[in-house]
């Protein structure tokens, strides 16, 4: 779960003396929105984002509808005039959980990754994290998601896993929504099968409530955190 495994290693960077227009062109060419700024020794000194550029270029120029009169003035703008200095960064041995929490806290779309000497080694973006979580959720593998309401007490998950395993069904993933209702949790097993009617009946016979899919709700975190 380390950042080094999920980050983009071939990171596009730029120097502080380069023109801001160059950053704009790099972003559109590579479909990216964040470019780390490095000194000649590749040490991270800043980050430039599409938002930084939008704040200094007028919208028509940013969109490529150039106005010849103003272009010369924009050409003089350097990266160092626009970038965010001393940006928050991660190391390759921070975890993707660290990355998720930090990205949420800092309200940014990506964080640069630097080694112990402060040299740029990668960048991890929301997109990289999404890819990791798509993998963890097992969405890419054919299967069926169930939602089971359980009492919040020790041993519930084991009973469910055992009941499913007895039917010779493999798990793609299993998620637990920590808080559903008072003293209730919602368990979401993703089963690698089309054949779920029998196991659904079995779980109901064991006394579990299978929630109506239209009531499923995974995001139990307060939204305005």
């Amino acid at each position: 779960m380390f950042v080094s495994r999920s980050m983009t290693q071939k990171v596009i960077s730029i120097g502080p003396e380069a023109s801001a227009i160059k950053a704009k062109n790099l972003m559109s060419e590579h479909h990216i929105r964040h470019i780390p700024v490095v000194d000649p020794e590749k040490r991270l000194i800043g980050v430039i984002t599409d938002r930084d550029l939008r704040s200094v270029f007028p919208a028509p120029f940013y969109k490529g509808e150039e106005e010849s009169g103003a272009v010369d003035e924009f050409k003089k703008l350097k990266i160092k005039d626009v970038m965010t200095r001393d940006p928050v960064s991660l190391t390759p041995y921070d975890t993707i959980q660290d990355a998720l929490l930090l990205i949420q806290k800092m309200r940014v779309g990506a964080l640069p990754v630097v080694d112990k000497d402060g040299k740029l080694t990668g960048i991890i973006s929301v997109r990289d994290l999404l890819r990791a979580f798509i993998n963890v959720l097992g969405i890419g593998t054919p299967g069926t998601l169930l939602c089971i309401l359980v009492e919040e007490k020790v041993g519930q998950l084991k009973k469910i896993v055992d009941a499913i395993t007895e039917e010779n069904i493999s798990f793609g993933s299993i998620l637990v929504a920590r808080y559903w209702d008072k003293d209730k949790r919602a368990v979401f097993p993703y089963l690698l099968t089309q054949n779920v009617s029998k196991i659904k009946k079995k779980l109901e016979n064991m006394g579990y409530t299978l929630l109506n899919p239209m009531d499923w709700y995974m995001d139990q975190l307060p939204k305005n955190d």
Partner: peptide, 8 residues
Amino acid sequence: PSFAFPGT
């Protein structure tokens, strides 16, 4: 597909 097989 978020509720049923095969997820595509």
